[in-house]
Write a protein that binds this DNA or RNA. Structure first.
Length: 646
RNA sequence: GCCUCUGUAGCAUAGUAGCUAUUGCGUCUGACUUGUAAUCAGAAGGUCGGGGGCGCACAUCCCUCCAGAGGCUCCA
């Protein structure tokens, strides 16, 4: 076993396992070692850190999965800052880190910047890179640092923190032209930063607090190789092409109209087909998994939200109440209390459990205007919701079953990359309701379920729902963009609040555990995801138009019509394009509409009782026997297959 | 909600030192009856996101509201 180390400058070194941190540091040079955040040490990181911390009082962080890019990006950010200060001396630099996707630089300025400024800045950046200035790290006393950044209140604020922690200030000099307060790490010189590209301009609050001043932010990214830049640009183009808002318009899926309001979705006929196909699938599946469907009202007297403690906590995110007969009525932002009402409406025994109540409930939330985006964040939504009421003993298995249900849905849709985030309570925060014991128990149940299920997950010690821990399912589209698809919770809070009870075997009364789950999230977000995931090329069973017949001339209309009839009969969404247009034109239109199966009908077909098939990817096959083809298509749809094989 | 930017017919666009708007696709009509990504011709369609203001005159300048985008904050 050897320790592989990749240095910030790209060179590689190997050390035998067991080499002390001190030896390593000495060998690669102290400066490099201290900047060794870019170091990769296959599987040895943890040990190495312990050693280094012990021997040298510093630590190696790795960005293994990013291949050391973070360091390059961080240095790129310094170069951007340097360029900005040179071109616009009045700019006050605030901060600028690298991220998983590049870097950004926050600053204060009276002038508001736009992407039109990018060429000039990028030119200056290229100069700095060309000069290949040496980047040097220095540890200096806080006092000295204060002087160095005398006129910069942001750096002073940062130094307050450093002083409080009794750390020395580290600064990085780029040649003698630029200095910044920074923990590092950095590349040894500016020439190694590669091609730096500025991406967009935005704004952000200082230290991420909406009470603070808003700063301007420039996002950028850099690449070592030109090839990587090209790939990046290509991916960006692909993302743009697959933008669900663009596809939603082009393919007549949905519409949001100004007159009605932001975040309020109109499903067009084709979008409605997709929505209902998904919904039917969910109903069918969940029936098999033991769920019972219910339907509940969309409005309620305010009392239930006091009981649930959503009011006044989430008042700002709910639509204002309406006054009905002197009572305040709210539009429901979630289905939970309504399902609780159903649970409570009858006497329940342990024999009734688990009781799984499901509803594609229609909820409305008053999302912040700035948060609304296409289908991904809306104000009216239909949720693949259900609540499982069960005993403590059943809870873990029930929760695992929910995870399995997710896995089934993902598999069917070709979602291969997904992960789970377990969000626990931050005991410091006041956001969370309920007592200590309840949280402890809920979190333990959750952890046990996660562990037993064997799925991979990460833990976040904050971000739970106010009434219980939750897991978020993060799914990745085929082009690698991540979406939060669903949130699931174990809830020991609401059962008590709503006075839900069942009679146990021993005749005593117990409060059920409630599992909140919504594997397909909302129709809105999920179809937004699917649009990107499939790039608009839905599998047959989800396609609004499954088969488009195109006649060569009107002479063949009657044969084509008879086929359409047979297909409709077989449950296939088929339609005939008998416009007086050429076949190439009809093909083109069907391609643009992303109709999966195109059938050309001409003389040959009529005579032989066949069809000529063209698929979206351009495969053509003549002489398919019509009746057999229809059967095959119907079968494919029924099985909800991802692909259609000729 | 906050910051910056944007808003021209169904879609995509031209037009910003102010004088009633360009082109393509789509739509409609007519001709063509056509074998796998766009047949030809003609016509209709916008007062330039809404409102207000400064001008003899505004898509073009100013104010305001609305909507969208990129972010930040938020996301039960």
């Amino acid at each position: 076993m050897v320790i592989h180390i990749e240095l910030p400058d790209g060179s590689k070194k190997q050390f035998p396992k067991g080499t002390s941190g001190y030896e390593i540091a000495k060998s690669i040079g102290e400066r490099l070692a201290k900047d060794a955040l870019a170091i990769e040490a296959d599987g040895e990181v943890k040990d190495l850190n312990t050693k280094l911390e012990k021997d040298c009082k510093f630590k190696i962080f790795t960005y293994k999965d990013l291949g050391g890019k973070k360091t390059m990006w961080h240095t790129s950010e310094h170069i951007l800052t340097q360029a900005m200060l040179k071109l616009f001396p009045s700019v006050k630099m605030a901060m600028g880190p690298s991220t998983d996707e590049g870097f950004y630089f926050d600053f204060e300025s009276d002038r508001s910047f736009t992407p039109d400024d990018f060429p000039a800045i990028e030119k200056e950046i290229a100069e700095i890179v060309k000069k290949d200035l040496k980047i040097e790290r220095k540890e200096i006393p806080v006092k000295e640092a204060r002087k160095l950044f005398e006129h910069n209140k942001y750096k002073q604020e940062w130094l307050d923190e450093i002083e409080k922690n009794k750390e020395p200030a580290t600064v990085y000099w780029t040649g003698d032209e630029f200095v910044d307060l920074c923990a590092g790490p950095h590349l040894p010189s500016t020439g190694k930063a590669g091609t730096i590209k500025l991406l967009r301009i935005a704004s952000a609050y200082w230290r991420g607090d909406s009470k603070n001043k808003q700063l301007q932010r420039i996002y950028g990214i850099s690449f070592k190789e030109k090839k990587e830049l090209d790939e990046y640009i290509k991916l960006q183009e692909e993302i743009e092409k697959r933008d669900h808002r663009k596809l939603g318009k082009d393919l007549d899926i949905f519409e949001i109209v100004e007159e009605v309001g932001p975040g309020l979705v109109f499903w067009l006929p084709k979008g409605t087909i997709i929505k209902e196909a998904l919904e039917n699938w969910a109903k069918e599946t969940e029936a098999k998994w033991g769920y019972k469907r219910v339907s509940t009202p969309m409005i309620t007297k305010e009392g239930v939200f006091h009981t649930s403690e959503h009011l006044p906590h989430y008042k700002d995110s709910m639509f204002s109440p309406m006054d009905i007969d002197g009572e305040k009525y709210y539009i429901k932002p979630m289905n939970c209390p309504f399902h609780h009402m159903i649970f409570k409406a009858r006497t329940r025994s342990y024999r009734d459990l688990p009781l799984r109540l499901a509803e594609y409930g229609w909820c409305h939330r008053y999302e912040q205007s700035g948060a609304i985006t296409g289908l991904l964040r809306v104000r009216s939504m239909q949720m693949n919701d259900a609540h499982i009421y069960c005993t403590r003993e059943q809870a873990v298995d029930e929760f695992i079953a929910v995870i399995r249900l997710h896995e089934y849905y993902y598999k069917m849709l070709g979602i291969t990359e997904y992960s789970m985030e377990l969000a626990l309570r931050n005991p410091e925060s006041k956001k969370y309701h309920g007592d200590e014991a309840m949280w402890k128990e809920a979190e333990e149940l959750m952890m046990e379920a996660m562990k037993k299920s064997g799925v991979k997950y990460t833990v976040i010690n904050d971000g739970a729902a106010f009434y219980g821990p939750k897991i978020d399912f993060q799914i990745k589209s085929v082009i690698g963009r991540e979406f939060t698809a669903s949130t699931n919770q174990i809830d020991l809070f609401m059962g008590k609040k709503f006075g839900l009870e069942y009679t146990g075997e021993d005749g005593k009364r117990y409060t059920p555990v409630i599992i909140h789950r919504a594997p397909l999230g909302t129709h809105e977000r999920f179809i937004g995801f699917l649009l990107e995931h499939f790039g608009g090329k839905f599998p047959l069973w989800l396609s609004p138009v499954q088969v488009r017949l195109m006649t060569v001339s009107e002479k063949f209309d009657s044969y084509a019509n008879s086929l359409v009839e047979k297909m409709l009969e077989a449950g296939i969404r088929a339609e005939l394009d008998n416009r007086s247009e050429s076949i190439p034109k009809k093909v083109r239109d069907a391609q643009l509409e992303k109709v999966p199966l195109m059938l050309t009908i001409g003389e040959k077909e009529v005579e032989a009782g066949t069809v000529a098939l063209r698929t979206l990817d351009g495969q053509v096959k003549f002489g398919l026997e019509a009746a057999k083809f229809i059967e095959q298509v119907a079968e494919n749809i029924k099985s909800r297959a991802l692909t259609f094989k000729i």
